[in-house]
Design a protein around this nucleic acid. Sequence first.
DNA 1: TGAACATATGAATATATAATCATACGTATA
DNA 2: TATACGTATGATTATATATTCATATGTTCA
Lengths: 120, 120
Amino acid sequence: MREKNSADRCECTVIHEEVVNMVKSKMPDEEKLYDLAELFKVFGDSTRIRILWALSESDMCVCDIASLLNMTQSAISHQLRILKQTRLVKNRKEGKVVYYSLDDGHVKQVFEMGLFHINE
Amino acid sequence: MREKNSADRCECTVIHEEVVNMVKSKMPDEEKLYDLAELFKVFGDSTRIRILWALSESDMCVCDIASLLNMTQSAISHQLRILKQTRLVKNRKEGKVVYYSLDDGHVKQVFEMGLFHINE
DNA sequence: TGAACATATGAATATATAATCATACGTATA
DNA sequence: TATACGTATGATTATATATTCATATGTTCA
């Protein structure tokens, strides 16, 4: 029955039904794959990735980052919010100044994985 | 002089000029970070990530994938083109049928890295 | 050769999202 | 307490991109 519905939607004959069923049984939860895509999406923007890279070198305040990347304070602040929501960065407030830093060590590992691929 | 320009753009005083200069000297090439963002962007779509995951289980033809993911053949075909351009998948033709498979082993590693983060 | 089918693709549409702009908020200090 | 400054944020705009739709391409087989 599920196959029928799929066939309706994909408008083509299932060529290898056994393969499809096997793969379907092994696929992770839909939700988990969506979360994974969301995580990668955060890394998939050059502004955010440059912010993350910068923070892997040193904690910095919003103004520092804006200066470093030659962008407006507002643009940086918006992106930092996204990075914070994803728990990739955290911040601490000292008076008027807010310092941002990486929230965990995985960020660097994900970077290295990506560069490894590119450098081939 | 570079600092002046940055200050113009970021519309705020550089708070820690030494930090900014230090980080600036350690940042990878702009181009490399853009490439990295582009790579992650490809992973940052749930359709593409589900395709990649499926192909990590078994080679499949376009029709199989469309059936598996309950999407149209056209949508899958468009996404496969992007995955092929990024050299994440490759294909072989057998008659009318085109079989897609992962182009290298890094894909799986990148997945695992991402899931590791999510599962915390 | 013509019909059927698997796949690819250009154009159009719909939606997501990054940057900008104006402004609000919070803190230090004069 | 008024001003200056660092930061945050809602609304708008501009752009990117995922999907759909219609159709083209290429292959098999009768």
